Amino acid sequence: MSALLRLLDVGSGDSEDSWIGAASGPEGKRAFGGQFMGQSLAAAARTVEPAKRPVNMHLQFLRGGEAGDDVDYSVERVFDGRTASARRVVSRQAGRVITAATVSFSLPLPGPEHGHAAALPEDPETLPRTGPPGPAPSMPLDEIDIRVVDDRSAGEFVRRLWWRVLVPVPEDPLLHDVIAAYVCDVYMIDPALQVHGHSMVARTHRSGTTDSSIWFHRPVRADRWNLLETRSPAAARGRGVITGSLLGADGGIAATVVQEGLIAEREQ
């Protein structure tokens, strides 16, 4: 099994509805937030009938996690109905709460549809393979092709992050959603700083995600090109908000992502 798939394949814990997520490494580093997004979603889904697909997820980052330690996940079965289910997921390391999430699932239902992009802005195959916008020691980057384009041509800062998984991914639709939740977290709060000419890499500001949400609209194919296009509509009081659309290779909006994060000036 690849490093990415092994990381997102949570195992059974020591009690019912408890699960263990593998450490991402390296030791002594802060854990990547996407790990908690992906593993929390995977843990919640283990308690829901497979026919119900994830439709939305909201996760609060309460403490920084340790990349070198396993993560314990406890799932609360909040609701189970005929077409929908809801779960609450709390992650812990060394007994300390790290994140708290809610996840909703639903059977596919018929209804009106919209959300198709007119055209994708570029062909990702023509772009250089940049990797993430900064260091990402916890991510198996040899298994994920990431190509980033930062665009200010329209007068606002827009980040286009193209990505696809390079290792074989099973056909399980849930796994593709879990991978999307994992990858889309990478440096997503950075555009709130980039608007002002700063960046997370420069470390001029205290920065980090405090809240992350994702709504799934259409199936995601992690092994094909996906485009996460993000911008920051507002920032104040040392925090910024990022909104993003995850587009599939056909230009359809597969998911909507929103993050809030800390972007506070460091004390002199």
Rank of each mutant, 00 (worst) to 15 (best):
M1G: 12
S2R: 03
L4A: 08
L5A: 04
R6H: 05
L8W: 01
D9G: 03
D9S: 15
G11F: 00
D14Y: 00
S15H: 08
E16Q: 14
E16I: 07
A22H: 14
A23W: 00
S24D: 07
S24N: 04
P26C: 04
G28E: 10
G28I: 06
K29M: 11
R30Q: 09
A31N: 11
Q35Y: 00
F36M: 13
F36L: 15
M37A: 14
M37W: 03
G38P: 11
T47E: 14
E49L: 14
P50F: 12
A51N: 15
K52D: 12
N56R: 15
M57A: 13
F61E: 10
L62W: 09
L62S: 10
R63P: 03
G65N: 14
G65V: 08
D69K: 15
D70T: 08
Y73L: 09
Y73H: 08
R77I: 03
G81E: 14
S85D: 13
S85K: 13
S85W: 05
S91L: 03
G95W: 10
G95C: 13
V97D: 10
A100F: 00
V103F: 05
F105Y: 15
S106D: 12
L107I: 11
L109F: 00
G111A: 06
P112M: 12
H114Y: 07
A117Q: 14
A119P: 04
P124F: 04
T126D: 12
T126N: 06
T126G: 03
L127P: 07
L127Q: 08
M139D: 00
L141D: 08
L141S: 06
V148R: 05
V148Y: 02
D151I: 05
A154I: 09
V158E: 07
W162R: 11
W163E: 09
V165Y: 09
V167N: 01
V169K: 11
P173N: 13
L174V: 04
L175F: 00
H176Q: 10
H176I: 04
H176E: 08
D177S: 14
V178N: 05
A180W: 01
V183P: 04
D185I: 04
Y187D: 08
A192V: 09
L193K: 14
Q194F: 00
V195Y: 01
H196F: 05
G197W: 01
S199Y: 03
A202S: 12
G208F: 01
T210S: 05
S212M: 11
S213G: 02
F216G: 09
F216Y: 15
R218F: 00
R218Q: 12
P219I: 05
R221T: 02
N226Q: 12
L227T: 07
E229R: 14
T230K: 05
R231I: 00
R231C: 01
R231M: 01
A235E: 06
R237A: 07
G238T: 07
V241R: 13
I242L: 12
S245A: 12
S245E: 15
G248F: 02
G252A: 15
I253L: 06
V258W: 00
G261E: 07
I263R: 11
A264E: 11
E267P: 03
E267A: 11
